[in-house]
Design a protein around this nucleic acid. Structure first.
Lengths: 196, 196
DNA sequence: AATGTAGTTGACGCCATGTCAAGTAAAGAA
DNA sequence: TTCTTTACTTGACATGGCGTCAACTACATT
Protein backbone atom coordinates (compact mmCIF):
# COMPACT_ATOMS: atom_id res chain seq x y z
CA UNK A 1 0.00 0.00 0.00
CA UNK A 2 1.64 3.17 -1.18
CA UNK A 3 1.55 6.35 0.82
CA UNK A 4 -0.21 9.07 -1.11
CA UNK A 5 1.06 12.60 -0.70
CA UNK A 6 -1.34 14.30 1.61
CA UNK A 7 -1.30 17.98 0.96
CA UNK A 8 -0.42 20.47 -1.69
CA UNK A 9 2.70 21.69 0.11
CA UNK A 10 4.23 18.26 -0.10
CA UNK A 11 3.21 17.91 -3.73
CA UNK A 12 5.00 21.15 -4.49
CA UNK A 13 8.09 20.11 -2.56
CA UNK A 14 8.46 16.73 -4.22
CA UNK A 15 7.80 18.29 -7.62
CA UNK A 16 10.43 20.94 -6.95
CA UNK A 17 12.92 18.32 -5.80
CA UNK A 18 12.41 16.38 -9.00
CA UNK A 19 12.55 19.35 -11.37
CA UNK A 20 15.58 20.90 -9.72
CA UNK A 21 17.53 17.71 -10.26
CA UNK A 22 16.11 16.81 -13.67
CA UNK A 23 16.42 20.18 -15.36
CA UNK A 24 18.96 21.99 -13.19
CA UNK A 25 18.00 24.19 -10.24
CA UNK A 26 18.60 27.69 -11.56
CA UNK A 27 16.66 27.30 -14.80
CA UNK A 28 13.53 25.91 -13.14
CA UNK A 29 11.05 28.76 -12.69
CA UNK A 30 8.18 29.02 -10.24
CA UNK A 31 5.88 28.61 -13.24
CA UNK A 32 7.58 25.34 -14.20
CA UNK A 33 7.12 23.98 -10.70
CA UNK A 34 3.50 25.06 -10.40
CA UNK A 35 2.59 23.56 -13.76
CA UNK A 36 4.32 20.28 -12.96
CA UNK A 37 2.52 20.22 -9.60
CA UNK A 38 -0.82 20.84 -11.32
CA UNK A 39 -1.65 24.19 -9.73
CA UNK A 40 -1.45 27.82 -10.74
CA UNK A 41 1.73 29.82 -10.36
CA UNK A 42 0.14 32.13 -7.82
CA UNK A 43 -1.02 29.23 -5.66
CA UNK A 44 2.58 28.32 -4.90
CA UNK A 45 2.79 31.58 -2.97
CA UNK A 46 -0.07 30.40 -0.74
CA UNK A 47 2.39 27.77 0.55
CA UNK A 48 5.81 29.40 0.24
CA UNK A 49 6.49 33.09 0.59
CA UNK A 50 9.21 33.23 -2.02
CA UNK A 51 11.43 31.22 -4.32
CA UNK A 52 14.10 31.22 -1.63
CA UNK A 53 11.64 29.92 0.92
CA UNK A 54 10.53 27.13 -1.43
CA UNK A 55 14.10 26.08 -2.14
CA UNK A 56 14.96 26.14 1.53
CA UNK A 57 11.93 23.98 2.33
CA UNK A 58 12.86 21.61 -0.50
CA UNK A 59 16.31 21.16 1.01
CA UNK A 60 14.80 20.34 4.43
CA UNK A 61 12.35 17.97 2.72
CA UNK A 62 15.27 16.11 1.15
CA UNK A 63 17.26 16.16 4.38
CA UNK A 64 14.42 14.45 6.23
CA UNK A 65 14.24 11.70 3.64
CA UNK A 66 17.96 11.04 3.68
CA UNK A 67 18.48 10.24 7.33
CA UNK A 68 17.51 6.64 6.77
CA UNK A 69 20.32 5.48 4.50
CA UNK A 70 23.10 3.07 5.40
CA UNK A 71 25.65 5.85 5.05
CA UNK A 72 24.03 7.88 7.80
CA UNK A 73 24.18 4.86 10.12
CA UNK A 74 27.82 4.21 9.21
CA UNK A 75 28.64 7.79 10.10
CA UNK A 76 26.95 7.50 13.47
CA UNK A 77 28.69 4.21 14.23
CA UNK A 78 32.19 5.23 13.17
CA UNK A 79 34.66 5.34 16.05
CA UNK A 80 38.20 6.35 15.18
CA UNK A 81 39.13 9.55 13.35
CA UNK A 82 39.98 7.86 10.05
CA UNK A 83 36.78 5.81 10.25
CA UNK A 84 34.74 8.95 10.81
CA UNK A 85 36.55 10.63 7.92
CA UNK A 86 35.69 7.80 5.56
CA UNK A 87 32.10 7.58 6.79
CA UNK A 88 31.71 11.33 6.43
CA UNK A 89 32.95 11.31 2.85
CA UNK A 90 30.76 8.30 2.09
CA UNK A 91 27.70 9.95 3.58
CA UNK A 92 28.43 13.21 1.82
CA UNK A 93 29.12 11.59 -1.55
CA UNK A 94 25.72 9.93 -1.43
CA UNK A 95 23.91 12.95 -0.01
CA UNK A 96 25.05 15.66 -2.40
CA UNK A 97 23.48 14.14 -5.54
CA UNK A 98 20.10 14.36 -3.83
CA UNK A 99 20.35 18.03 -2.92
CA UNK A 100 22.44 19.14 -5.87
CA UNK A 101 19.66 20.68 -7.97
CA UNK A 102 18.06 22.55 -5.09
CA UNK A 103 21.44 23.60 -3.73
CA UNK A 104 22.42 25.07 -7.10
CA UNK A 105 19.10 26.91 -7.23
CA UNK A 106 19.86 28.40 -3.84
CA UNK A 107 23.43 29.28 -4.76
CA UNK A 108 22.22 31.18 -7.82
CA UNK A 109 20.12 33.44 -5.60
CA UNK A 110 22.81 34.18 -3.04
CA UNK A 111 24.20 37.27 -4.75
CA UNK A 112 20.93 39.10 -5.15
CA UNK A 113 18.87 37.75 -2.25
CA UNK A 114 19.93 38.31 1.32
CA UNK A 115 17.59 35.61 2.61
CA UNK A 116 19.08 33.03 0.26
CA UNK A 117 22.57 33.99 1.40
CA UNK A 118 21.52 33.46 5.01
CA UNK A 119 19.98 30.05 4.36
CA UNK A 120 23.13 29.01 2.54
CA UNK A 121 25.33 30.32 5.33
CA UNK A 122 23.43 28.35 7.95
CA UNK A 123 23.72 25.13 5.98
CA UNK A 124 27.41 25.73 5.41
CA UNK A 125 27.88 26.29 9.13
CA UNK A 126 26.30 22.96 9.92
CA UNK A 127 28.42 21.23 7.28
CA UNK A 128 31.58 22.83 8.65
CA UNK A 129 30.67 21.60 12.12
CA UNK A 130 30.60 18.07 10.75
CA UNK A 131 34.04 18.58 9.28
CA UNK A 132 35.27 20.09 12.52
CA UNK A 133 34.13 17.14 14.63
CA UNK A 134 35.98 14.83 12.27
CA UNK A 135 39.21 16.80 12.39
CA UNK A 136 39.02 17.23 16.16
CA UNK A 137 38.68 13.50 16.64
CA UNK A 138 41.71 12.94 14.43
CA UNK A 139 43.60 15.54 16.41
CA UNK A 140 42.68 14.04 19.78
CA UNK A 141 44.02 10.71 18.57
CA UNK A 142 47.30 12.44 17.72
CA UNK A 143 46.87 11.55 14.06
CA UNK A 144 46.53 15.05 12.63
CA UNK A 145 49.51 15.96 10.50
CA UNK A 146 51.68 18.53 12.30
CA UNK A 147 51.65 20.53 9.08
CA UNK A 148 48.11 21.72 9.83
CA UNK A 149 46.08 23.28 12.59
CA UNK A 150 42.55 22.08 13.23
CA UNK A 151 41.15 25.24 11.62
CA UNK A 152 43.24 24.81 8.51
CA UNK A 153 42.24 21.16 8.30
CA UNK A 154 38.57 22.10 8.52
CA UNK A 155 39.02 24.69 5.78
CA UNK A 156 40.74 22.19 3.50
CA UNK A 157 38.27 19.40 4.19
CA UNK A 158 35.20 21.59 3.70
CA UNK A 159 36.66 22.98 0.48
CA UNK A 160 37.56 19.56 -0.88
CA UNK A 161 34.04 18.34 -0.10
CA UNK A 162 32.20 21.47 -1.22
CA UNK A 163 29.28 21.08 -3.58
CA UNK A 164 31.22 22.97 -6.25
CA UNK A 165 34.12 20.53 -5.93
CA UNK A 166 31.72 17.60 -5.97
CA UNK A 167 30.15 19.04 -9.12
CA UNK A 168 33.48 19.37 -10.85
CA UNK A 169 34.62 15.86 -10.04
CA UNK A 170 31.42 13.92 -10.61
CA UNK A 171 29.45 15.90 -13.19
CA UNK A 172 32.26 17.51 -15.17
CA UNK A 173 34.97 14.87 -14.72
CA UNK A 174 32.59 11.90 -14.61
CA UNK A 175 33.76 10.35 -11.35
CA UNK A 176 31.19 7.87 -10.06
CA UNK A 177 29.98 8.18 -6.49
CA UNK A 178 32.19 5.24 -5.51
CA UNK A 179 35.23 6.78 -7.17
CA UNK A 180 34.47 10.10 -5.54
CA UNK A 181 34.25 8.56 -2.09
CA UNK A 182 37.40 6.47 -2.40
CA UNK A 183 39.53 9.13 -4.03
CA UNK A 184 38.45 12.11 -1.96
CA UNK A 185 38.87 10.06 1.20
CA UNK A 186 42.35 9.08 0.04
CA UNK A 187 43.30 12.66 -0.81
CA UNK A 188 42.05 13.94 2.55
CA UNK A 189 43.97 11.18 4.38
CA UNK A 190 47.13 12.16 2.55
CA UNK A 191 46.64 15.80 3.49
CA UNK A 192 45.44 15.45 7.05
CA UNK A 193 46.74 12.26 8.61
CA UNK A 194 50.21 11.68 9.91
CA UNK A 195 51.53 8.42 8.43
CA UNK A 196 51.11 5.35 10.68
CA UNK B 1 53.62 60.41 -18.84
CA UNK B 2 50.56 58.32 -18.25
CA UNK B 3 48.86 56.41 -20.98
CA UNK B 4 45.32 57.67 -21.47
CA UNK B 5 42.73 55.13 -22.47
CA UNK B 6 42.17 55.68 -26.12
CA UNK B 7 38.69 54.53 -27.00
CA UNK B 8 35.34 53.91 -25.47
CA UNK B 9 35.69 50.12 -25.64
CA UNK B 10 38.67 50.26 -23.32
CA UNK B 11 36.90 52.67 -21.01
CA UNK B 12 34.03 50.24 -20.75
CA UNK B 13 36.34 47.30 -20.13
CA UNK B 14 38.32 48.94 -17.37
CA UNK B 15 35.13 50.22 -15.79
CA UNK B 16 33.62 46.75 -15.93
CA UNK B 17 36.76 45.23 -14.43
CA UNK B 18 36.61 47.66 -11.53
CA UNK B 19 32.88 47.34 -10.85
CA UNK B 20 32.87 43.55 -11.08
CA UNK B 21 35.51 43.38 -8.38
CA UNK B 22 34.25 46.24 -6.22
CA UNK B 23 30.57 45.35 -6.12
CA UNK B 24 30.56 41.68 -7.12
CA UNK B 25 30.16 40.48 -10.68
CA UNK B 26 26.63 39.12 -10.74
CA UNK B 27 24.96 42.17 -9.20
CA UNK B 28 26.58 44.65 -11.57
CA UNK B 29 24.11 45.45 -14.36
CA UNK B 30 24.81 46.78 -17.84
CA UNK B 31 23.25 50.04 -16.64
CA UNK B 32 25.71 50.27 -13.74
CA UNK B 33 28.65 49.81 -16.07
CA UNK B 34 27.41 52.29 -18.67
CA UNK B 35 26.76 54.95 -16.03
CA UNK B 36 30.16 54.46 -14.42
CA UNK B 37 31.75 54.65 -17.87
CA UNK B 38 29.86 57.86 -18.59
CA UNK B 39 27.82 56.65 -21.54
CA UNK B 40 24.27 55.49 -22.08
CA UNK B 41 23.22 51.91 -21.46
CA UNK B 42 22.41 51.38 -25.13
CA UNK B 43 25.82 52.62 -26.23
CA UNK B 44 27.49 49.64 -24.54
CA UNK B 45 25.81 47.47 -27.15
CA UNK B 46 27.59 49.44 -29.87
CA UNK B 47 30.81 47.88 -28.52
CA UNK B 48 29.75 44.52 -27.10
CA UNK B 49 26.95 42.39 -28.44
CA UNK B 50 25.79 41.08 -25.08
CA UNK B 51 26.58 40.92 -21.39
CA UNK B 52 28.34 37.63 -21.98
CA UNK B 53 30.46 39.20 -24.70
CA UNK B 54 31.40 42.11 -22.44
CA UNK B 55 32.38 39.82 -19.59
CA UNK B 56 34.41 37.64 -21.90
CA UNK B 57 36.22 40.68 -23.27
CA UNK B 58 36.83 41.94 -19.74
CA UNK B 59 38.47 38.64 -18.84
CA UNK B 60 40.77 38.86 -21.89
CA UNK B 61 41.51 42.49 -20.99
CA UNK B 62 42.61 41.42 -17.51
CA UNK B 63 44.56 38.46 -18.90
CA UNK B 64 46.59 40.77 -21.12
CA UNK B 65 47.47 43.01 -18.21
CA UNK B 66 48.53 40.13 -15.97
CA UNK B 67 51.23 38.59 -18.14
CA UNK B 68 53.80 41.03 -16.82
CA UNK B 69 53.92 40.02 -13.15
CA UNK B 70 56.81 38.28 -11.42
CA UNK B 71 54.66 35.21 -10.87
CA UNK B 72 54.22 34.71 -14.59
CA UNK B 73 57.97 34.87 -15.07
CA UNK B 74 58.54 32.43 -12.20
CA UNK B 75 56.15 30.01 -13.83
CA UNK B 76 57.95 30.20 -17.15
CA UNK B 77 61.34 29.73 -15.51
CA UNK B 78 60.39 26.84 -13.23
CA UNK B 79 62.20 23.62 -14.12
CA UNK B 80 61.36 20.60 -11.97
CA UNK B 81 57.86 19.29 -11.34
CA UNK B 82 57.63 20.53 -7.76
CA UNK B 83 59.00 23.91 -8.82
CA UNK B 84 56.39 24.18 -11.56
CA UNK B 85 53.71 23.16 -9.09
CA UNK B 86 54.69 25.90 -6.66
CA UNK B 87 55.03 28.50 -9.42
CA UNK B 88 51.66 27.50 -10.83
CA UNK B 89 49.94 27.87 -7.47
CA UNK B 90 51.76 31.16 -6.88
CA UNK B 91 50.73 32.49 -10.27
CA UNK B 92 47.17 31.31 -9.85
CA UNK B 93 46.81 32.67 -6.34
CA UNK B 94 47.81 36.12 -7.57
CA UNK B 95 45.80 35.90 -10.79
CA UNK B 96 42.41 34.83 -9.45
CA UNK B 97 41.79 37.95 -7.35
CA UNK B 98 42.06 40.01 -10.52
CA UNK B 99 39.52 38.03 -12.51
CA UNK B 100 37.31 37.00 -9.62
CA UNK B 101 34.53 39.56 -10.15
CA UNK B 102 34.29 39.03 -13.88
CA UNK B 103 34.58 35.27 -13.49
CA UNK B 104 31.69 35.22 -11.03
CA UNK B 105 29.64 37.33 -13.42
CA UNK B 106 30.32 34.77 -16.15
CA UNK B 107 29.56 31.82 -13.89
CA UNK B 108 26.19 33.30 -12.99
CA UNK B 109 25.19 33.32 -16.65
CA UNK B 110 26.30 29.77 -17.45
CA UNK B 111 23.02 28.10 -16.61
CA UNK B 112 20.82 30.28 -18.77
CA UNK B 113 23.19 31.36 -21.52
CA UNK B 114 24.78 28.86 -23.85
CA UNK B 115 27.40 31.36 -25.02
CA UNK B 116 28.51 32.04 -21.46
CA UNK B 117 28.80 28.32 -20.82
CA UNK B 118 31.02 27.97 -23.88
CA UNK B 119 33.31 30.83 -22.87
CA UNK B 120 33.64 29.33 -19.41
CA UNK B 121 34.33 25.89 -20.84
CA UNK B 122 37.12 27.21 -23.04
CA UNK B 123 38.80 28.99 -20.17
CA UNK B 124 38.50 25.88 -18.00
CA UNK B 125 40.07 23.83 -20.76
CA UNK B 126 43.06 26.14 -20.89
CA UNK B 127 43.39 26.07 -17.10
CA UNK B 128 43.22 22.27 -17.05
CA UNK B 129 45.97 22.15 -19.67
CA UNK B 130 48.18 24.12 -17.31
CA UNK B 131 47.44 21.62 -14.55
CA UNK B 132 48.08 18.74 -16.93
CA UNK B 133 51.50 20.03 -17.97
CA UNK B 134 52.44 20.29 -14.30
CA UNK B 135 51.31 16.79 -13.44
CA UNK B 136 52.94 15.30 -16.53
CA UNK B 137 56.26 16.84 -15.61
CA UNK B 138 55.97 15.41 -12.13
CA UNK B 139 55.13 12.04 -13.62
CA UNK B 140 58.04 12.04 -16.06
CA UNK B 141 60.35 12.71 -13.13
CA UNK B 142 58.95 9.65 -11.42
CA UNK B 143 57.67 11.77 -8.57
CA UNK B 144 53.92 11.26 -9.04
CA UNK B 145 52.44 9.27 -6.19
CA UNK B 146 51.55 5.74 -7.39
CA UNK B 147 48.15 6.26 -5.78
CA UNK B 148 47.07 8.46 -8.69
CA UNK B 149 46.96 8.44 -12.46
CA UNK B 150 47.81 11.62 -14.35
CA UNK B 151 44.12 12.18 -15.13
CA UNK B 152 43.11 11.82 -11.50
CA UNK B 153 45.91 14.17 -10.48
CA UNK B 154 44.73 16.77 -12.95
CA UNK B 155 41.17 16.46 -11.67
CA UNK B 156 42.27 16.89 -8.05
CA UNK B 157 44.61 19.76 -8.81
CA UNK B 158 42.12 21.67 -10.94
CA UNK B 159 39.43 21.17 -8.28
CA UNK B 160 41.70 22.28 -5.44
CA UNK B 161 42.64 25.39 -7.43
CA UNK B 162 39.18 26.15 -8.81
CA UNK B 163 37.84 29.65 -8.44
CA UNK B 164 35.12 28.36 -6.15
CA UNK B 165 37.71 26.74 -3.88
CA UNK B 166 39.82 29.90 -3.98
CA UNK B 167 36.72 31.88 -3.02
CA UNK B 168 35.98 29.66 -0.06
CA UNK B 169 39.51 29.75 1.31
CA UNK B 170 40.36 33.41 0.78
CA UNK B 171 37.07 35.28 0.89
CA UNK B 172 35.07 33.09 3.23
CA UNK B 173 37.89 31.69 5.38
CA UNK B 174 40.08 34.78 5.19
CA UNK B 175 43.27 33.12 3.98
CA UNK B 176 45.67 35.72 2.61
CA UNK B 177 47.15 35.21 -0.83
CA UNK B 178 50.43 34.13 0.75
CA UNK B 179 48.69 31.65 3.03
CA UNK B 180 46.66 30.36 0.10
CA UNK B 181 49.76 29.79 -2.00
CA UNK B 182 51.78 28.10 0.73
CA UNK B 183 48.98 25.92 2.06
CA UNK B 184 47.46 24.84 -1.23
CA UNK B 185 50.90 24.06 -2.61
CA UNK B 186 51.59 22.01 0.52
CA UNK B 187 48.29 20.14 0.25
CA UNK B 188 48.84 19.38 -3.42
CA UNK B 189 52.38 18.14 -2.69
CA UNK B 190 51.01 15.85 -0.02
CA UNK B 191 48.42 14.46 -2.41
CA UNK B 192 50.44 14.21 -5.59
CA UNK B 193 54.13 13.75 -4.80
CA UNK B 194 55.78 10.57 -3.71
CA UNK B 195 57.93 11.35 -0.63
CA UNK B 196 61.63 12.01 -1.36
C1' DA C 1 28.53 71.13 -48.25
C1' DA C 2 27.91 66.13 -47.90
C1' DT C 3 28.87 61.98 -45.49
C1' DG C 4 29.99 58.76 -42.01
C1' DT C 5 30.84 57.86 -37.06
C1' DA C 6 29.57 57.54 -32.45
C1' DG C 7 26.84 58.83 -29.49
C1' DT C 8 21.93 60.37 -27.49
C1' DT C 9 16.82 59.53 -25.85
C1' DG C 10 12.62 57.11 -25.53
C1' DA C 11 9.98 53.19 -26.33
C1' DC C 12 9.18 48.37 -26.69
C1' DG C 13 9.45 43.10 -26.21
C1' DC C 14 10.49 39.30 -23.26
C1' DC C 15 10.73 37.00 -19.02
C1' DA C 16 11.23 36.24 -14.06
C1' DT C 17 9.56 37.16 -9.18
C1' DG C 18 6.09 38.79 -6.40
C1' DT C 19 1.43 41.10 -5.28
C1' DC C 20 -3.46 42.10 -5.50
C1' DA C 21 -8.42 41.85 -6.41
C1' DA C 22 -12.27 39.32 -7.61
C1' DG C 23 -14.41 35.07 -8.46
C1' DT C 24 -15.34 29.86 -7.67
C1' DA C 25 -15.85 25.05 -5.88
C1' DA C 26 -16.20 22.15 -2.15
C1' DA C 27 -16.29 20.81 2.69
C1' DG C 28 -17.99 21.47 7.22
C1' DA C 29 -21.02 23.78 10.65
C1' DA C 30 -25.36 25.98 12.13
C1' DT D 1 -30.68 23.70 3.72
C1' DT D 2 -27.89 27.72 4.11
C1' DC D 3 -23.75 29.97 5.59
C1' DT D 4 -18.96 30.25 6.09
C1' DT D 5 -14.33 28.99 5.56
C1' DT D 6 -10.62 27.16 2.94
C1' DA D 7 -8.08 26.52 -1.03
C1' DC D 8 -7.63 27.55 -5.31
C1' DT D 9 -8.54 30.12 -9.94
C1' DT D 10 -7.89 33.94 -13.39
C1' DG D 11 -6.34 38.29 -14.88
C1' DA D 12 -3.84 42.29 -14.12
C1' DC D 13 -0.01 44.88 -12.53
C1' DA D 14 4.74 46.49 -10.57
C1' DT D 15 9.68 45.95 -10.77
C1' DG D 16 13.86 45.11 -12.93
C1' DG D 17 17.04 42.72 -15.78
C1' DC D 18 18.69 42.10 -21.07
C1' DG D 19 18.42 43.22 -25.73
C1' DT D 20 16.53 45.97 -29.89
C1' DC D 21 14.84 49.69 -32.66
C1' DA D 22 13.89 54.26 -34.56
C1' DA D 23 14.82 58.92 -34.70
C1' DC D 24 17.81 62.54 -33.56
C1' DT D 25 22.45 65.10 -32.75
C1' DA D 26 27.29 66.51 -32.68
C1' DC D 27 31.45 66.18 -34.82
C1' DA D 28 35.17 64.98 -37.88
C1' DT D 29 36.50 63.75 -42.59
C1' DT D 30 36.47 64.32 -47.27
Amino acid sequence: MSITIRDTSNTILSTAERLFNERGGPIVSMKDISEAAGISRQAVYLHFASRTSLISATLCFIDDASRNGDEFRHLREAQTGPEILYAFVEYWGNYVPKVYGAAKALMALRDKDEAAATVWEERMESFRNGCRRTIETIEHEGRLSPQWTVDEGVDLMSTMLSIESWERLTIERSWTTEEYVVRVNRALRQILLVPD
